[in-house]
Computed example of a mutant assay.
Amino acid sequence: MYTHIMFPVDLHLPPEVRKAADVAAEVAKWQGAKITIVSVTGNQPGDPVQTDGAINDDLRAFADQLATNSGTEVAYLNIHSVDVAAEVDGDLARAAEGIGADLIVAGTHAPRITDYIFSSHAGYLANHAKVSVFVIR
């Protein structure tokens, strides 16, 4: 049913990402699907500046771990953004189309008061992506 799963990640790896990674691995194993990890990065105030090489090393290590857990092919893609906070949602929705994903598995947090005003990233994807979105809380 699904052949290509996009898995958006925050490289800080909050608990929601770790839980969603387990689900993505299980679905990929069950469906025989490829996984592509997608990260949107940029220089944010307060974050240490990371080089593209360091970001790719982190993504490669995470992809290797996910490949071991899922037993399927895992690729990765880093999208550089000038303003991650403003662009991440659109970048992820476009990335799903660009890589040909037919399912997005995204982790999210429990609803907060601000989520009633602004949607979470997973909420945005669920409302705007052109493919199925599996949101893990």
Rank of each mutant, 00 (worst) to 15 (best):
M1V: 10
H4A: 12
M6G: 06
V9P: 01
D10M: 04
L13V: 11
V17F: 08
R18K: 14
A21V: 07
D22H: 08
V23D: 02
A25Q: 02
A25D: 02
V27G: 06
V27Y: 02
K29C: 07
W30C: 08
Q31M: 15
Q31L: 06
I35Q: 06
I37H: 03
I37R: 07
I37Q: 11
I37N: 08
S39F: 02
S39Q: 00
V40E: 08
P45G: 04
V49W: 07
Q50E: 14
T51R: 02
G53H: 13
D57S: 11
D57R: 13
L59M: 10
A61P: 00
F62N: 00
A63D: 08
D64Q: 09
L66Q: 10
T72Q: 12
T72C: 14
V74M: 04
Y76N: 12
S81A: 15
V82S: 10
D83M: 03
D83V: 03
V84C: 11
V84R: 14
D89T: 06
L92F: 06
A95G: 01
A96Q: 09
E97L: 03
G98M: 03
I104V: 06
I104Y: 07
I104P: 11
V105G: 01
V105A: 10
H109A: 12
T114C: 07
D115G: 14
Y116G: 04
F118V: 12
S119W: 04
S119E: 12
S120T: 15
S120C: 07
G123V: 11
Y124K: 11
A126G: 09
H128V: 05
A129K: 01
K130G: 05
I136L: 06
I136R: 01
R137E: 07
